[in-house]
Amino acid sequence: MSPILSTHGLGRTFRTKGGPLHALTDVTLDCDPGRSLGVVGESGCGKTTLNRLILMLDTPTAGEVRFKDKPLAQLTTNERKAYRRAVQPVFQNPYSSLNPRLRVRKIIREPLAANTTMSRAQIDARVDEVLEAVGLSSRDADRLPAEFSGGQRQRIAIARALASKPELMLLDEPVSSQDISIRAQILNVLKDLRDEYGLATLFVSHDLATVRFMCDEVVVIYLGRIVERGPANVICSAPRHPYTQALLAATLSADPDAPEMATRPQGEIPSPLAPPSGCPYHTRCPHAHDLCKAQRPQAQPAEGGGTVACHLVEQGGW
């Protein structure tokens, strides 16, 4: 089965006053039908750039994004419409993703009116349907965003994404601005919808715990490059790359007796304007040696599944 969406050697370099900024380098990943892929990284790692490239809000400077094996740049007008219908985003901040001047019905209607041939009545029926699917009611369609709480707004944003019967949902930190009790509700809604409609999801997050809950497979990005990929249970409990290990140690569990992790995070995230030579993580890595400074490690298959880009793992441990 071919992936709905895939990226191949995807890269984006911005020209800035301080020189070239490599926001994303050589990112290859597949979103298969019904599967949930997690993308994990900290600020400045290129998560946002990846999103924008997939959503055609920006164009890559290297590699390409493919929709069902066809590069985005080669899509015909109709295929592009199909793509826009099939790939739907939900953003982090529901206060910014809903136009405060439009009623909910109009907000949800927008992608349908633009990319489908549905009649007005069909669209209205669909709006009611998706509102109910996310736990709101059809009465809410005639209200303004300001009348809803943050959690409800995020449900509206999800309903909007759901309306055009997508095949892939692009979830960009959809719960990180929500309260704990609301966070759990939204995560459940997303998981239910995914199972019910057989959606593929690309779940972007900085939090390994939510990723563990939501995803089958995970890629970890550091300074624009994939450093590790593998099944969610491996990445979130026994990661192989020192960066992922530090990330796991930094994911504080709600348990005062949680065991201390062996690898502790240290150092600052380097500026993407002046990325370190060799392995991008060597400046913060407790195990770094000369080779790490000189040569960039290649992704190698690792025990437990997936790949790791680390000289030390390659050489059989520290």
Partner: peptide, 25 residues
């Protein structure tokens, strides 16, 4: 604002974005 990006990802034209999303706000 994200709703402008969302409108763009839905394939809305510039005029539609200006009149529906920008001017009213």
């Amino acid at each position: 604002e994200d709703y402008v990006d969302l409108a763009r990802t839905s394939g809305l034209g510039h005029a539609a974005i200006i009149f529906r999303h920008i001017l009213p706000n």
